[in-house]
């Protein structure tokens, strides 16, 4: 479905990605783990078209989308929940969700999806009139995911959905991520919490200073000694 080939991306003056390649197949959950500054978010931003690679290709369904602007890429069915959630703070919860469906014209479908999101996250329905900026961290994460779902993505990019959340909320959100995947959405998940990410994903890539150093089925990587040492905190 998505194939990233040897991309080099510059962020400010930094050569952030030095030839990253990865592949995501329909229906999978693929995770990207690595430490701070390894280039995980840059990879997602390059796929979404916010950043453009200096070299390399990003193939979605076989066509190169590396140099398309971000707002066009959303139209192809790639939605992102960015790092830090980026809720629009002075728009209501309902308006935030509506903006998630900005490019869609099928009123009936949008209405159904809105109901689905409220079903998935009942707390958002309660707070639908509240401004986005007033929600708690966990609620904001739910809103961010809900908003991305409103775009009916074929591929959902999730950047650190566990960041700064209480363990019980994290557990709930990861449950929902798996459910979204079961309902037919392909997912690329970026996480620092490797344990969690390897637990829910089918395959994984390890990113270190702008390069993919390891990749394979998540279950195998979870037992890999290097991964255990570097990311799972074992001695």
């Amino acid at each position: 479905m998505l194939k990233v080939e040897e991309i080099h991306t510059y962020y400010d003056h930094i050569h952030a990605l030095k030839g990253v390649s990865l592949e995501i197949r329909e229906g999978e959950i693929v995770c990207l783990i690595g430490s701070n500054g390894a280039g995980k978010s840059t990879t997602l931003m390059t796929i979404s078209g916010v950043l453009h690679p200096a070299r390399g290709r990003v193939l979605f369904d076989g066509q190169d989308i590396a140099h398309r602007p971000a707002d066009r890429i959303v139209g192809l069915g790639i939605c992102q929940v960015p790092e830090g959630r980026r809720i629009l703070p002075r728009l209501s919860v309902a308006d935030n969700l509506e903006m998630g469906a900005f490019l869609r014209r099928d009123r009936e479908g949008i209405r159904q999806d809105l109901e689905k999101v409220y079903e998935l996250f009942p707390v958002l329905a309660e707070r639908r009139r509240q401004q986005g900026g007033t929600l708690s961290g966990g609620e904001q994460q739910m809103l961010a995911i809900g908003r991305a779902l409103m775009g009916r993505p074929r591929l959902l990019l999730l950047d650190e959905p566990s960041l700064g959340l209480a363990p019980i909320v994290v557990e709930k959100i990861f449950g929902i991520i798996q459910q979204i995947n079961r309902d037919g959405t392909t997912i690329l998940l970026v996480e620092q919490n490797a344990n969690l990410a390897l637990g829910v994903s089918d395959r994984a890539y390890v990113l270190e200073t702008g390069r993919v150093t390891l990749s394979g089925p998540s279950r195998e990587l979870a037992h890999d000694e290097r991964v255990r040492k570097a990311y799972l905190g074992e001695q």
Binding site: A70, R72, L91, G151
Partner: peptide
């Protein structure tokens, strides 16, 4: 609403498909 969204966060708005 898209106008307000762009004023609040340009990158996020682009990620929602709004042409800045």
């Amino acid at each position: 609403k898209a106008m307000r969204a762009t004023a609040q966060d340009k990158v996020m708005s682009a990620l929602l498909g709004i042409n800045a």
